[in-house]
């Protein structure tokens, strides 16, 4: 997994609430057996017309947001299915950080596993950021994970909360499985004791 330390980028606004995983990556693209290559399909139905041409009203189709690595959006982002294709697609289109008032649990969790930083901020702060991103698209935002801050020029400076373990993994690009396998003796010990209590499980 790629490390996430700091990010300086313009931000694209998606003014929608409850952006669900079917919007982020529709089912016809879930037939892949790979993690990569989903970026061109991200947000398919709101990004392209039925004939495949880009929709002018989708923010990331506008030249000013083309290189955005940050998304700013509404509450309950990523609700719906557990498909990790959703963060894979978002990452593959170049987005590394998503800012919203709230996220659905599974999507939030899946994001960290792929080096994407999802940031929860109060609605008023998200509103301020999204207005900034719309009014002056060209000025970059600076996200610093170590300090847990988002800044823009001299006008905006917000702090955000993040679970210390997730922060540690993201800063160091750590692989969960490797970390867990270091605890193998604990797992074996658990299984041995549990076998006495719940023999029908094994």
């Amino acid at each position: 997994m790629q490390k996430f330390e700091t990010l300086k980028s313009i931000a694209a606004p998606i003014r929608m609430t409850n952006v669900d995983t079917d919007i982020i990556i529709p089912k016809q693209f879930l037939k892949t057996v790979k993690r990569t290559g989903l970026g061109i399909h991200a947000f398919h139905d709101i990004r392209y017309h039925e004939d495949g041409t880009p929709r002018a009203d989708f923010p990331l189709n506008k030249p000013e947001y083309e290189d955005a690595q940050i998304l700013i959006t509404g509450e309950n982002f990523g609700c719906g299915s557990s498909r990790e294709h959703a963060p894979w697609a978002i990452l593959d289109m170049g987005i590394k950080c998503i800012i919203a008032p709230s996220f659905a649990d599974i999507f939030y969790n899946n994001s960290f596993k792929n080096g994407i930083l999802p940031i929860k901020l109060p609605q008023e702060q998200v509103d301020e950021l999204i207005n900034e991103a719309e009014n002056t698209p060209n000025a970059p935002f600076e996200v610093n994970l170590q300090n847990q801050t988002i800044k823009r020029g001299n006008t905006i400076s917000f702090e955000f909360e993040i679970d210390p373990f997730r922060k540690h993994c993201l800063l160091n690009g750590l692989d969960d499985i490797g970390l867990t396998l270091e605890k193998k003796p604990h797992i074996t010990d658990f299984e041995n004791k549990d076998r006495e209590k719940r023999s029908w499980i094994y």
Binding site: R35, S82, E84, N109, I177, T180, L181
Partner: peptide, 14 residues
């Protein structure tokens, strides 16, 4: 429900 990274985690470690 879990994502695919966690599917791999469970397969490998239970």
């Amino acid at each position: 429900g879990i994502g695919t990274s966690e599917v791999e985690h469970v397969l490998a470690t239970q």
